[in-house]
Design a protein around this nucleic acid. Structure first.
Lengths: 113, 113
DNA sequence: ATTCGTTATACTTATACTAGTATAACGAAT
DNA sequence: ATTCGTTATACTAGTATAAGTATAACGAAT
């Protein structure tokens, strides 16, 4: 049988936010560390860092405020704007998922094409 | 402001059908020629041909029946199954588009994040 | 001053995908 | 038999993206 697949993201000066960045930011929120957030989702630190920086550039504001050094090496936390964006996108994305699944069922459920 | 972007496709032994193949098959239907259909959408013939062949392989049935030679060089036309698949996917895709647009509006309309 | 894990950045290498080139078979029309 | 535009297939080159490597700065804690 078939399998539904999709990608949904928003653009602003190019691709700017999607489910990947959302997950990464969630990890930062939970761990307080960009490095650990990246590790948790099996992403290299440099990739995570470049991702965040490129998004911040396109958005025109910062998503995380980081400090390096200190006993724990450093830390990162989300900005208020990041939290707003995450919430908006997550609600949007969840609703999209739900609807796409329904529509897919409707059209492909009993199809043996 | 943001811009919504998405890709929706179905898989079966890997990516198998999406808006691109649909457009190409529509072109074949209209022109009676895979070559002309490809040209119309600025796609090279070999790419179009490989695309159709790889999809047919994954699906396990043929999408176009082609003959080469003859005064017009050759021709291609859609199989019945191709037309069924196209119709199913197109209806599905249109409904997805409509819904995604609405959901996007709902969440991002008055957002200045 | 040394240690530590993080942040930060630059640079190189792989990989996947896209696009392009080349060549042959086909067969009705002339 | 030659022509023509198509179908058909193989092979090469390019390009964009991802992944990997390397190195430095940071600064509280010891």
């Amino acid at each position: 049988m078939y399998q539904l697949k999709y990608k949904i993201w928003i653009e602003k000066n190019g691709k700017v936010f999607g489910i990947g960045p959302l997950m990464l930011l969630k990890g930062v929120s939970e761990t307080g560390s960009l490095s650990e957030a990246a590790r948790k989702m099996d992403m290299s630190y440099n990739k995570a860092h470049n991702l965040i920086k490129s998004i911040e550039k396109k958005l025109g504001y910062e998503l995380i405020s980081s400090k390096s050094g200190g006993s724990k090496g450093g830390s990162s936390e989300l900005t208020e704007k990041a939290e707003e964006l995450m919430m908006t996108y997550e609600n949007f994305y969840n609703e999209c998922e739900e609807n796409l699944r329904k529509i897919y069922q409707k059209h492909f459920k009993n199809s043996n094409i």
